[in-house]
Design a protein around this nucleic acid. Structure first.
Length: 694
DNA sequence: TTAGAGTCAATATC
DNA sequence: GATATTGACTCTAA
């Protein structure tokens, strides 16, 4: 463009020359010469600038090409290694046949000489596992050594969806099923138990395991694991899941991958969906920053390299969970697992293979990854990219921030038997939940920070959830993985020296945002119920939803009646629920939900500290009930005043300190307890149960 | 299908 | 306005 404009200027000058050529004066000529000189000078400068630019571009391109070439070289090396492994194990079928022959020979020998089995055949067994032991050596448990791992992962090439593999699961199953010798030795119960333990330890859900490994529904998986049929009673089709389970157990890659999938699907530590202006990734980064603040006193200059920037942008929940866990573990001085010499590089390599898109081996792992890619990530937001699962692992080793002290040490200490750090490390972690909630409450109160702000900014929960967490903390051991997350977050927040400062800043921003929304008329309750064709409303984020059911408010009598039934029948039958619902004029789902919630809250209060678990003798029975659960004061019944309700509560307040378990209540169950406490079904104001679905 | 855990949102209470 | 309570929901396991 600039060159073009210069040329236009020159042309104008030339025109000027032509125009003035009739009577050129020396002054004109001088002017023209001067203009030309300036133009020439300008052009020279332009040329120099463009040359510099060109040089820079060339340099950058060269760097980029070099980088790509390096990556290509690495990938090529990796492919070569894999091909070599594949090549080296191409004699699998042959060896297997030989082993069969050997085994047959061994059995023959055993018949002849029971007490002296050939030692060479016995050496085939890899470990003491009677299930795995029966297999050929390729199907052994991973011993943690690279050879074993590679051997295992390379051999497990059978894939439910793979047709390219020379050894498909189907062919393997067929062979195994056809093999009469395995039939009498396959211990399905033990295998099921091993799978159950593995899933439990790695926090892999039965649904995910069933879907990606067995191709079965969660219910079927549960059934198979809980009540495995003997091998001899199974048909060839029935044996297939067990063989797949054996595959799964023998391949560490499969286990790791599935665990990663599970965590990704759960969205570990980012289970909530924040408002549009604050993505979950932002929240994650916020937590990461928080952790880093504690872990890193000063930043390493090397962190600014391109790679780290890329990785930082790709922080995933896996990174977060690691960070949080490492920090929490460090703070609580929990005993770390035994040192393991498995180098990080080994993990990098292992995890790296997950990502290897060029991997031509149609192995188990690849199949799972592809399945996930095709089924899960295609329709998700960009931040949850298809390569997230594998990238998250790579981030562990590649992110210079995480290479910082402490984290690196912890990473190295991760035992090989626990490939996914989060689940295993959570198991070894223990936090004092009551102490944490006390400290959080004190801190919030002292700094005048509300539960809402704290919940939204620190935990990603609503005010009500925060209130429940702080008021009724469960002991650590009673918490699920998801429940533990909140306490880890709180613990980390307490450790953050800038926690108050940050929250105050958030508070201010939040306040401004509220004001803004209020001014725009989008945040007030009256605006919330905007009719959408008379059947819905728009929430404060502008999302329009179908009409929500108004809240059902149980009257004091209804509640008393339910409690009365609970005293003698904490787990009412469907028949009882229906009768209760009919008698109280409630929907059966309401009654059902009430029992769920009541049992849950009885348990919860039982878990809480004695101060908060004030229980009392209920008027309708002898079983203790948490006072918080009989809020008769909430809505005085007909002819009942607030004072009456208070009196009633006072009456009930014979403190019975101690944990009262539901089981005790259960034991007191006897014949049908329905005593018809008050059959009057008062319709509570504000409820519209007619809207409840049938 | 049922039950438990965790959570939300409406509402009550302070 | 902040916090507590509670009916209802989702997800997971059995």
């Amino acid at each position: 463009m600039e060159i073009q404009s210069n040329q236009e200027r020159i042309h104008k000058h030339m025109d000027l020359c032509v125009f003035t050529a009739a009577s050129p004066t020396s002054a004109d000529l001088e002017t023209m010469v001067a203009m030309r000189d300036r133009d020439i000078h300008r052009l020279e400068q332009e040329v120099r600038r463009l040359q510099r630019l060109l040089q820079e571009v060339q340099e950058r391109t060269a760097n980029h090409v070099a980088l790509l070439q390096q990556q290509l070289a690495n990938k090529s090396q990796h492919i070569e290694r894999l091909q070599a492994k594949l090549q080296s194990q191409q004699d699998y079928e042959k060896i297997k046949t030989e082993l069969r022959t050997l085994r047959a020979l061994m059995q023959t020998t055993d018949v002849i000489s029971v007490f002296s089995p050939p030692s060479d055949v016995r050496s085939v067994s890899v470990d003491n596992d009677p299930v795995i032991q029966k297999e050929t050596p390729e199907f052994h448990h991973s011993t943690g050594k690279e050879e074993a791992l590679n051997e295992s992962s390379s051999v497990i090439s059978g894939s439910p969806a793979s047709s390219s593999s020379s050894l498909s699961v189907q062919s393997f199953i067929k062979e195994e099923t056809d093999s009469g010798e395995d039939e009498q030795e396959f211990d399905t119960a033990r295998l099921a138990q091993q799978v159950k333990e593995a899933l439990q330890q790695l926090n892999i859900g039965q649904r995910v395991f069933g879907h990606y490994v067995l191709g079965l529904s969660q219910g079927t998986v549960s059934d198979i694991l809980a009540r495995p049929k003997p091998w001899s009673k199974l048909t060839s089709r029935g044996r297939e899941p067990f063989l797949r389970m054996k595959h799964f157990l023998s391949d560490e890659h499969s286990i790791r991958t599935l665990s990663a999938i599970q965590e990704r699907l759960r969205g570990v530590f980012v289970p909530w969906v924040g408002p549009p202006d604050r993505s979950s990734d932002d929240v994650i980064r916020n937590i990461l920053d928080q952790s880093r603040l504690e872990m890193l006193d000063d930043d390493d200059d090397d962190d600014d390299d391109e790679g780290s920037r890329c990785q930082r942008g790709g922080d995933t929940s896996d990174d977060v969970i690691r960070n949080i866990l490492q920090q929490a573990k460090h703070e609580t001085q929990t005993q770390t697992p035994a040192m393991n010499d498995a180098p990080v590089r080994q993990e990098e390599e292992d995890y790296g293979t997950l990502e290897s898109g060029v991997q031509s081996l149609a192995d188990f792992v690849q199949n799972i990854i592809q399945k996930v890619k095709s089924e899960i990530y295609e329709d998700t937001e960009p931040s949850v990219s298809p390569s997230s699962v594998s990238r998250s692992f790579q981030t562990l080793a590649a992110d210079p921030d995480q290479r910082a002290q402490g984290f690196k040490m912890e990473t190295r200490q991760r035992p090989r038997s626990c490939p996914i750090s989060s689940s295993c490390e959570l198991q070894s972690l223990h936090l004092d939940t009551f102490s944490i909630t006390q400290r959080v409450k004190e801190t919030l109160t002292a700094n005048n920070i509300g539960q809402r702000v704290f919940g939204e900014e620190v935990l990603g929960l609503t005010q009500s959830s925060v209130s429940e967490l702080l008021s009724h903390p469960k002991p650590w051991t009673k918490l699920s993985l998801k429940g533990k997350e909140n306490f880890i977050r709180m613990h980390l927040w307490l450790q953050d020296p800038q926690n108050i400062q940050k929250l105050n800043a958030m508070k201010k921003m939040d306040h401004r945002a509220r004001l803004k929304r209020a001014l725009m008329g989008s945040d007030c309750a009256s605006q919330r119920w905007l009719d959408v064709g008379g059947q819905g409303f728009c929430d404060r984020w502008g999302r329009c939803e179908a009409m929500k059911r108004p809240r059902v408010i149980l009257s004091a009598q209804e509640r008393d009646a339910l409690i009365a039934v609970y005293q003698t029948e904490p787990y009412p039958s469907q028949h009882t629920i229906e009768r209760l619902a009919a008698q109280l004029g409630l929907h059966t789902s309401t009654v059902s939900n009430w029992f769920y919630n009541y049992r849950s809250r009885i348990r919860r209060d039982g878990f809480s500290e004695p101060v908060q678990t004030r229980t009392f003798q209920n008027s309708t029975g002898s079983s203790p009930v948490s006072s918080s659960l009989v809020r008769v004061k909430q809505e005085p019944s007909d002819g009942e005043t607030e004072e009456d309700a208070d009196l009633q509560r006072e009456e009930h307040s014979h403190v019975s300190v101690g944990v009262q378990s539901v089981s005790r209540v259960k034991r007191e169950k006897d014949e049908d307890p329905w005593t018809s406490p008050d059959q009057q079904c008062r319709k509570t104001s504000g409820t519209s149960r007619d809207l409840l679905p049938a």
